Amino acid sequence: MKDDEQRREEQEDREENHQRERELAEAKARGDEKEPLFDDESVRLGDLDEALKSHDYPTTTAESVAAYGDYELEIQGDKKLLEYVLSSTDDQTYDSAEDVRRRILGVIGR
């Protein structure tokens, strides 16, 4: 009986070691990944975030560009106008500030 118990404990120890090794390998692999561009949505869009919250919805991409196209967004250390960022997208309808924000973040996250 003791031999069986000892073997089970050894097996559990080996499995735990393998799990730790896998976790270390995954952490090393993730070390090569780039950090996210931004940490939270309010920082991502700065003043534009507040402007979008006060906008009347629904709205379209074209209307958003007309209203806020001159807002500058910082993208990987570079500043780009919202008009430039959204110019590559199709005209869509947005029901809320969150919808517009998601679209902008989706475009700049590419």
Rank of each mutant, 00 (worst) to 15 (best):
L86V: 01
A29E: 05
G77I: 15
G109T: 11
R22P: 00
Y68M: 02
R110L: 11
E12V: 07
Y71L: 00
L81Y: 13
T93G: 02
Q19L: 12
T60I: 04
P58E: 02
A67M: 01
R20W: 07
T89S: 15
A62Q: 08
G31K: 02
R8D: 12
Q11F: 09
N17H: 11
G106N: 07
E5G: 01
R102H: 09
E23M: 06
E98S: 15
T60A: 03
S54V: 14
L45Q: 08
V85W: 01
A27N: 06
G77L: 14
D95N: 14
N17A: 14
D95P: 02
G109K: 09
L48D: 09
E12H: 05
D56A: 06
K53S: 10
R44S: 11
A67F: 00
D95I: 07
R22M: 05
E33P: 00
V43Y: 02
E35R: 00
E72R: 10
E5C: 01
N17W: 05
L81K: 14
E83Q: 05
D49V: 08
Y84T: 11
E15L: 15
G69T: 00
D3L: 04
V85D: 03
A25V: 08
R7A: 09
Q6V: 11
I108H: 03
T61C: 00
D4R: 06
D49L: 10
P58I: 05
K28E: 07
L48P: 05
Y84L: 07
D40N: 04
Y84G: 03
R101S: 14
K28F: 01
Y68W: 13
V65R: 00
A51C: 11
V65I: 13
Y94F: 15
K34P: 00
H18S: 14
E41H: 07
Q6M: 06
K53F: 02
V43G: 03
D4E: 06
E50C: 04
L52W: 12
T61D: 03
T93R: 07
V85M: 05
P58F: 04
Q11R: 14
G106L: 04
E10N: 04
P58Q: 04
L48E: 10
V85I: 15
D99T: 13
A27E: 10
F38A: 06
E15K: 15
R14M: 10
D40F: 03
S87W: 08
E63I: 02
A66Y: 04
V100G: 12
R14G: 03
Y57W: 12
A66D: 15
P58R: 05
H18C: 13
E83I: 00
A66T: 07
E23A: 06
Q76F: 13
H18T: 13
